[in-house]
């Protein structure tokens, strides 16, 4: 379970202070599919970065499975990212000089308890393209590869920052389906950050942010099928 209790993130720029997150309180249950919605500058990426251990909390408590990660040292945060987090970036951030398979395989060195590389590539539809380099892949394929890389180490939480932001509608839908299926199959808490409000109906929980504050949290008892999303 992810619990944010009065979490604030303040960026200082000279004498100016920018509150990217302002006393945010929310809870995401284990295995849930959460959609974080909001316009640019609403603080959604900041929240993702804090949950992913990529940035530090300025104020408040951030608990993961009951443990406050704000108290963790830098080394403990490394272990936290290693063991708990899978991250899917909007612009993939793949290693260009490693092949498709190697991009996934490199992560398997981080944990003994990982998924089979070939199986995960098969599941994201890249089995036939495993010897190619990222340069040879399309946008959708790159994102699928990015997902495979994120999930191969069986993270507890999968964080996706605008995963469909650079993709066309059909590819976007396929990517969302893939993320959802993999998360369900592996009991992964899935958090997708997006500015696309059409996605709100597919998540179990929809968190709407505005100006660094939670505007609304909505539990969706009957999420629609991803293919039904009107883009």
């Amino acid at each position: 379970m992810i619990k944010l209790n009065e979490v604030s993130k303040i960026y200082k720029s000279g004498t100016n202070e920018i509150k990217a997150l302002d006393k945010v309180c929310l809870t995401i249950e284990k295995g849930e599919f959460a959609i974080v919605l909001g316009p640019s500058g609403s603080g959604k990426s900041t929240m993702l970065n804090l949950i992913g251990g990529m940035d530090t909390v300025s104020e408040g408590k951030l608990e993961i499975d009951g443990e406050d990660i704000t108290k963790k040292s830098a080394a403990e945060m490394e272990n936290y990212r290693r063991d708990m987090i899978g991250f899917v970036f909007q612009f993939y951030n793949l290693i260009p000089s490693l092949t498709v398979r190697e991009n996934v395989d490199i992560v398997t060195s981080l944990t003994k308890n990982h998924l089979n590389v070939d199986e995960i590539l098969d599941s994201v539809g890249l089995k036939e393209r495993k010897s190619l380099f990222p340069f040879n892949l399309s946008g959708g394929e790159l994102q699928r590869l990015s997902i495979a890389r994120a999930v191969v180490k069986k993270p507890k939480i999968l964080l996706c920052d605008e995963p469909t932001g650079a993709l066309d509608t059909q590819t976007g839908i396929r990517i969302l389906r893939l993320l959802n299926d993999i998360a369900r199959e592996n009991d992964i808490t899935l958090i997708i950050v997006t500015h696309n409000s059409n996605l709100k109906d597919i998540g179990d929980t929809v968190i709407q942010l505005k100006d660094g504050k939670v505007e609304n949290i909505e539990k969706n008892t009957s999420p629609i099928e991803i293919e039904q999303v009107e883009w």
């Binding site: 490394e78 987090i85 991250f87 793949l94």
Partner: peptide, 14 residues
């Protein structure tokens, strides 16, 4: 640097 940052996010130690 971007590649190293990616690796850190993926969980690689320093």
């Amino acid at each position: 640097e971007r590649e190293y940052a990616t690796l850190r996010v993926l969980g690689f130690r320093k």
